[in-house]
């Protein structure tokens, strides 16, 4: 019994950074951006978080800075989006860049080679007076700091947000940007805020790794949690109601692979659990063809020419309009033909 509670407790901790990454991915996806830069946001959050926390000797300041670092990357994506840069390509570049940059900065300025371990106490766990002494509840809630609870609260907040007017607008922007724009919704601004928010959330997930639990930073410490988060968001069909269980699948699979060894399950079996969970999850997602459509649509949306240019600054003359792709409602073909009547 105790071992099982300890397992759950461990699973919650391992789920937390994945949950943040998954929420970030979900918000981006709902805004119509296939955001593959989550990994770099998590890593940047982990790095900046511990750096600032160590400098300020205050973990909360570190977490806020981590959110800021993720948000800056989100902002970068939003501006690139506005310039018409392919976000998929950019995101992959960013993931490599942030990884190398953290290693470079560690080597050059922090003296560490693989590890930066400042003199800093990680965020202390929250102790509930009374509860912590109870038999099952106590161990279950042990060693969980405020970021863990923030993750849960965030799920509820995002679920509520999707039911507000702004949330509905975000979904409309993501799903049908032209429809949203013609209904007077600020498409570009909505995407920008979604990317910034997603970046901040992913950054906090990174801070949980460095400031939150370990009090140190290591090379590539995000350890693919950004990608796992994207997978979890897909598995949750980008719905807040499913995001916690979906992230939990990966966190608890990881915990199981560690804990089952204690009851003499052979390591070569337990090793398979996280990969197996990911595989089964992806197959489940694949079987739902609608979500595959979602993915391909996201891909298309995130890497196609920006509609803003057509809607906000229509081409001033038909000669230039004629080099733009058709499909912008009905205004193009008419003008193209005009030139032919000469």
């Amino acid at each position: 019994m105790n071992a099982f509670v300890d397992f759950l407790n461990s699973g919650i901790r391992l789920t937390t950074p994945i949950l943040f990454a998954a929420i970030a991915s979900m918000i981006s996806a709902r805004a119509g951006v296939l955001n593959l830069a989550i990994e770099s946001k998590v890593l940047a959050g982990a790095f900046v978080g511990i750096l600032v926390a160590a400098g300020a000797q205050n973990t909360t300041v570190g977490v806020v800075a981590a959110a800021g670092a993720g948000a800056v990357i989100g902002l970068l994506l939003a501006f690139a989006d506005r310039l018409g840069v392919d976000l998929v390509v950019l995101a992959i570049g960013l993931n490599i860049l942030v990884l190398q940059l953290t290693v470079y900065l560690m080597r050059s300025y922090l003296g560490g080679v693989g590890t930066f371990s400042p003199d800093l106490d990680p965020i202390p766990p929250i102790v509930f007076p009374g509860l912590s002494e109870l038999p099952v509840v106590g161990p279950l809630l042990a060693r969980l700091n405020w970021i863990v609870y923030l993750g849960f609260v965030l799920v509820v907040l995002v679920a509520l947000f999707f039911r507000t007017r702004s949330g509905r607008h975000l979904i409309a922007v993501g799903e049908a940007p032209i429809a949203a724009a013609s209904a007077g919704l600020p498409v570009a601004r909505t995407r920008l805020w979604a990317l910034v928010a997603a970046g901040a959330i992913a950054g906090i997930g990174g801070a949980y790794l460095s400031v939150g639990d370990l009090g140190l930073f290591t090379r590539n410490m995000s350890g693919d949690r950004g990608w796992i988060g994207i997978t979890a968001a897909l598995l949750a069909l980008n719905r807040p109601a499913f995001i916690l269980p979906a992230a939990g699948v990966f966190g608890f699979a990881s915990a199981a692979s560690i804990r089952l060894q204690q009851i003499d399950v052979p390591a070569n079996l337990t090793q398979f659990i996280p990969q197996g969970a990911a595989f089964v999850a992806l197959v489940l997602v694949g079987i739902r063809s609608t979500s595959r459509d979602d993915l391909t649509r996201l891909w298309r949306n995130s890497s196609r020419l920006r509609l803003r240019k057509r809607l906000r600054n229509p081409p001033p003359d038909p000669a230039r309009a004629s080099s733009a792709p058709s499909g912008a409602g009905s205004q193009t073909p008419d003008e193209h033909d005009r030139t032919t009547h000469h």
Partner: peptide, 26 residues
Amino acid sequence: HFELVPSFTVAQNVLLGREPRKRGLF
């Protein structure tokens, strides 16, 4: 070319951008 949000209901599409609210929610 219709400018509709496919996953929204008729009512959600018709009132896109001018949704009624109750206690802050749609």
